[in-house]
Design a protein around this nucleic acid. Structure first.
Lengths: 238, 238
DNA sequence: TGTACATCAGTGAACGCGCGTTCACTGATGTAC
DNA sequence: TGTACATCAGTGAACGCGCGTTCACTGATGTAC
C-alpha cells in the first residue's frame, strides 16, 4: 500500500466497508493536503516543507512519509487537486446556465475560473505559473489539466460562427487534436478555442502576477470585455 | 558606494576617467550576473544561491557582498537586465523593418520576443512566471517592464482600424493610461494593445510552461497565426 | 615625485538555521483460525 | 469468541547537506598634500 502511487487519491470504496484504519488514513491524508495548501498560501510552493506541515499538524516530520513518499509526490497531489478544483468550479458554473444559452455558459466559465484564481492565487500559481524546476509533471496530471479546455470546446461547438479555416499547417494540428478529443470539430473551432483558452489564462496570469499594474488594474472590466470578445469570435452571439 | 542601491547598474561614466578599481568592479559585477544567469538556466530562480555563484567564480561567498548587499538585490538586477534584454531585442527587430510597414514591424516584434523567450526560458520565467514569494519588485523594475507594451503601442498607433470604442468603464481606464503614456491615443487602440500584449505573453507562457503539449505543440504555427490575428484586429493591414 | 592616510576587495571562520530522508523502535489495529 | 500473528501509524534520533549573512582581518589601490 505504501508503494501504491495513487493512494493519496480519493478511492471509490464503500464507506461502510472501510476499517477504522482506512478511515483515519483517508482523513489524515486530507488534513496533510489541507495544511500543505495553507502553507502554500502563506509562503508559496517553493517554501513548502514537509517538516513545517508536520509541525503544524502536531506530527513528527517522518510520519508524513506514511502518507506521501516524498515532497514531490505531495506537490503532485496538490497540483492534481488544484486542476480538479478549477475544473469542478467551472463545470458547476457552466451547468448553472441553460444549455440553450451558450454565450451565457461561456461567460459563466470565464468568470468562474477567474473567481477561483483570485481566491486561490497560490494554487493557481502552482499549476499555471513557473513549473517547479526539476519537477516533471507525471501523466496523472494531464487529464485534470484538460478539463477547462474541454469544457470550452463543448460550449464553442454550439456556436454558429463563420470561422475562417486557419492556414494549412495549423489545420493539420487542429485536426489531430479534434480527432483525439472531439472528432468532427472543424479546425476553426479548435483553433479558436485554444486561442481563447490561452487568452483566459494569459490574462489571469498577468492580473495575478502584477503585470497589469499601471494599465488595466483593477482588471475586472478588461476581463469581462475580453470574455465577451472571445465569445463573439466563436460565434456565441448575444 | 556600497549603500548605493543602483551601483550594480551600468553607470554612464567616461571610460577614460575610470580607475582600475572602478573597471574591475564593473567587470566583476557583470561576471557575477553572468554566472548567476547560468545558474538560473541550470536550476531555476529559487535555487539560485550566492554561495554557488561565488564558488563557480572562484571567490569566497562573502565576497559577493561587496557587489550585492543581498540575494534579493542580485535577483532584482537580473530581473531588470532581463526586461531590458527583451526590450532591446524587440526594439532592434522593429527598427530593422521600415517604419512605413507597421504590420511588418508588429510581426517582427512578436517573433523577436518569442525567439528571446525560447533562448532564455529561465530569464523569461524570472520576469513573467510566478513572482518570487516575499520578493517585492522595486520601482526600478516598472520602467524596463513597460518597454514592450510601449513599443506595441507605438506601432499600433499607425494602424487605421475601425476600432469600436470599448464599454465606458474600460474607456476610462484606457484614457488614464493614454494620458500618462501617449496622450491622444484613442481608447480602442489602448485596449487593443493591452489585449495583444497579454495574448503575446499568455501564449509564450503556455508554450514555455508546457501547457500546449497535447494541443498546439510545437507552437510555431499557432504563434504566427495569433500574431497575424492581432495585427488584423489593430488595423495593421497586410 | 614621494609619502601618509583612507578606501576598498577579498579572505576565512563562524553563527544559526531548516531542510528531506532514513531507520530501528513501540504500540495499536486488523485478520485468520 | 478468543488467541496468535501480521500489518501499519507514529516516534525520536540521526545523517548530511547547503544556505544567507556577519565579522575582524590583510593587503592592494587611490588620493591629498
Amino acid at each position: 500500500m505504501v508503494n501504491d502511487p495513487n493512494r493519496w487519491q480519493t478511492r471509490p470504496m464503500s464507506t461502510v466497508t472501510r476499517t477504522a484504519r482506512e478511515r483515519a488514513r483517508a482523513e489524515i491524508t486530507q488534513e496533510i493536503k489541507a495544511e500543505a495548501r495553507r502553507r502554500l498560501a502563506a509562503e508559496g510552493a517553493q517554501k513548502l516543507s514537509l517538516r513545517q506541515v508536520a509541525r503544524e499538524l502536531g506530527m513528527v516530520s517522518s510520519a508524513i512519509y506514511r502518507y506521501f513518499p516524498s515532497r514531490d509526490e505531495l506537490l503532485t497531489a496538490l497540483i492534481i487537486d488544484a486542476y480538479e478544483a478549477i475544473g469542478a468550479h467551472a463545470a458547476a458554473a457552466v451547468d448553472a446556465v441553460p444549455a440553450d444559452d451558450p454565450r451565457g455558459r461561456w461567460l459563466a466559465l470565464w468568470h468562474a475560473v477567474r473567481a477561483w484564481a483570485l481566491e486561490h492565487p497560490h494554487e493557481y500559481a502552482l499549476v499555471y505559473g513557473t513549473p517547479v524546476p526539476g519537477y516533471r509533471a507525471p501523466q496523472d496530471t494531464v487529464e485534470p489539466a484538460s478539463r477547462i479546455p474541454l469544457l470550452m470546446l463543448g460550449i464553442a461547438a454550439g456556436g454558429r460562427a463563420p470561422l475562417a479555416p486557419p492556414p494549412g499547417e495549423l489545420t493539420a494540428q487542429a485536426d489531430a487534436v479534434a480527432a483525439e478529443v472531439a472528432p468532427g470539430t472543424p479546425p476553426g473551432v479548435v483553433v479558436g478555442v485554444v486561442s481563447a483558452w490561452t487568452r483566459l489564462f494569459g490574462l489571469l496570469s498577468f492580473e495575478l502576477f502584477g503585470h497589469l499594474k499601471g494599465s488595466m488594474d483593477p482588471a475586472g472590466a478588461f476581463f469581462t470585455y475580453t470574455a465577451g470578445q472571445t465569445a463573439n469570435e466563436l460565434g456565441l452571439g448575444g
